[in-house]
Design a protein around this nucleic acid. Structure first.
Lengths: 138, 138
DNA sequence: TCCTACATTGGACATTGTCCAAGTCAAGAA
DNA sequence: TTCTTGACTTGGACAATGTCCAATGTAGGA
C-alpha cells in the first residue's frame, strides 16, 4: 500500500476502490491534472467511477493537505500531489505546461509590514510565466 | 473625457455608450470586479447592455493592457484597472477582499537560472493570502 | 454474517464564459 | 446635414467546469 493510502487509512478514511484509483492517478512527480483528466485516467482502471466522486475525493485530499489546488489560468483547477515540499509554478503562456520550481528565499518576506493593511498574512503563491523550450522553437 | 476614454479614442475605438459605461464602472482605485459585477453596475446606467458586450469590452481592455485580469480563487476572473503601476494582490481567505500591494524587489529575480528549465520567463505574479482585519475579529 | 454510517452514483442544476447571425449605430464622406 | 458602411451590440444557444441531492451500494466493525 502506498504511503498516501496508509495516511488516508490512518485518518479513518474508508478505502474504497474509487479512492484508491484516484490516489493512484495522482501518484508521481510533476503531475498537474485537472479534475476531468483525473476522471479520465481513473475511468481507465474503474470504468464506472462518477465525476462527482472524483470531485469529492479531490476536495477531501485538498482539505487534508495531501494535494494542492493550483489555478494558473482561470480555467479548470489543477491538482498537484507534491504537497510535501513547498514550491511554486512555472507556466508556459502558450501551451500551458507546468513545472514545479523552487525560488530563492521566502516570498512572504518581500511584503513589508506597511503593505499588510492589518491582514494576518500566512501564505504567498508565485506563478512564473514565459515560453517553454518547445514553444520557443515553434 | 476621462484619460482612459481618450486613450481608447486614440487607438481608433468607436466610443459607444456601452464602452463608456464599462470604462466608467472600472474607474477608481482598488476596483476588482468580476465580469458579472461590471455588468450589474453597468446595467444601472444603461439597462439593456448585454453580457456579451461586457465580456467583449473587458477582453479588449485586457488585450491592450489597460486592465489586468486577476484570478485569485479559481472562480470568476476579476478585472483590475490599476494597470499603470506594477503590483501584486493580497486576498482575504475568508471573505475574498482584495488589496493591491507592493512587495520589495523583483519577484522574477528569485528564480535562479537552474530553475528555469529552458523557459524564457517574462512575468511573475504573487498572491498573498491571509485574514483581513474584519475577518480576524469575526 | 449482518448492520449501518459513510461513500458512490447519475443526473439536474449553477456559474462563468464563448460564439454567432441579425440588427444597430458612430463617425467619416459628401 | 444626411448618407454609408463596417464595426459594434444584442440575445440566446452552447460549452466548460463545478455543486448538489435522493437513491443505492458497501467497507469495516460488532
Amino acid at each position: 500500500m502506498s504511503d498516501l493510502l496508509q495516511r488516508l487509512r490512518d485518518r479513518g478514511w474508508r478505502l474504497t476502490a474509487q479512492r484508491r484509483v484516484v490516489a493512484e492517478v495522482l501518484d508521481g512527480d510533476h503531475v498537474h491534472y485537472t479534475a476531468d483528466e483525473v476522471h479520465a485516467h481513473a475511468s481507465q482502471r474503474l470504468p464506472e467511477i462518477a465525476r462527482a466522486t472524483v470531485y469529492n475525493t479531490l476536495s477531501e485530499l485538498v482539505s487534508i493537505g495531501e494535494v494542492i489546488e493550483v489555478s494558473t489560468d482561470g480555467r479548470a483547477k489543477r491538482y498537484d500531489p507534491n504537497a510535501q515540499h513547498a514550491h511554486q509554478h512555472l507556466v508556459c503562456s502558450r501551451c500551458g505546461t507546468i513545472r514545479d520550481v523552487h525560488p530563492i528565499g521566502d516570498p512572504l518576506a518581500a511584503l513589508p509590514e506597511g503593505e499588510r493593511f492589518g491582514f494576518t498574512v500566512s501564505e504567498a503563491t508565485v506563478t512564473y510565466r514565459g515560453l517553454c523550450p518547445n514553444c520557443l522553437v515553434g
